[in-house]
Amino acid sequence: MTTTAERTPGPDDDLIMKVTDVEKYFPIMSKGVIRHHVGDVKAVDGISFNLRRNETLGLVGESGCGKSTTGRALLHLQPATAGSIVFDGHELTTLSQRAMRPLRRDIQIVFQDPYASLDPRMPVNSIVGEAMRIHGLWNKESTERIRVLLGLVGLNPEHGNRFPHEFSGGQRQRIGIARALALEPKVLVLDEPVSALDVSIQAGVINLLEDLKNRLGLAYIFIAHDLSVVRHISDRVAVMYLGKIVEIADTSELFERPAHPYTQSLLSAIPLPDPRRERARERILLTGDVPSPANPPSGCRFRTRCPKFANQLDDSQREQCVNEIPALDDRGMGHDVACHYAEVVDILA
């Protein structure tokens, strides 16, 4: 099923979504009666990537790196302030909400919190069927279709007339997935779909997402902070830091040959559930916290926490990090990385 052949990226005509230089700035207004625009929180600051059909692109990073904002910008829920998002030949960034509506059938989202994302006063059948009604697709077969959808996400279709509070967290997340699938989307944005769930429950939802992708030919944008889950489910992975993509590569490439110091420290920080390996590892400890996206460091944004910048570079090399924003390019690693001094280090060996 998941052979290497299937994971190899297809040709470019397979593209379903092309994201170019997308920015999402949130204005900061001064206090007082007359509020002046005094700056911007640069939540997403110029990111580009492609999504192919039937591909899972993992988007990882720490809180505040802009991964969820990216997901919302793709859906036009929080329209991007600049850049272009082309979905299946349509430019999304210039569309009005009304013109966007028919396209929403094709791009759906599953939210993180399965408790907050389902209306507690609606039975499951109505929750799953709501989108069909909104899009005027309700017909006499729809009731049957809801049963099929519930079965598809591994729930008992008999439970469709129950309310969300009667279900466990994992089951609510399955309801959210069924709702997202109701309109037969081509792309599913999964915003931390399993991070609110206990591990034993999480595994079942991950397996379900893998099955659905293979059975229905979906493409996923999988947003998560848990790199273990991302490695498990993704075909390609983009690592974000302070609103920018710092490294993007096929999953095995990224995890086996990480070239950006941030990716490397992220990988080295994950505790392994294997006592011998975990104790034998060397950690790259980052110092400090993520700087504010309202006022990011000049040049390379990671330099304030970068172990390489602090320990290995000389002053002239550091100058380049301070003055020049590293572009996301292939620097001879076989994949794109945004670091002037990128170097492959195998962290997980």
Binding site: T2, V199, S200, I201, Q202, A203, G204, I206, N207, E210, L227, S228, V229, R231, H232, I233, S252, F255, E256, L267, I270, L272, P273, D274, R277, L348
Partner: peptide, 16 residues
């Protein structure tokens, strides 16, 4: 049921 970041081959998980 834990996905492993240090294991390359894609394994199926065994949920409870």
């Amino acid at each position: 049921s834990l996905p492993r970041v240090d294991i390359g081959e894609r394994q199926r998980l065994t949920p409870i």
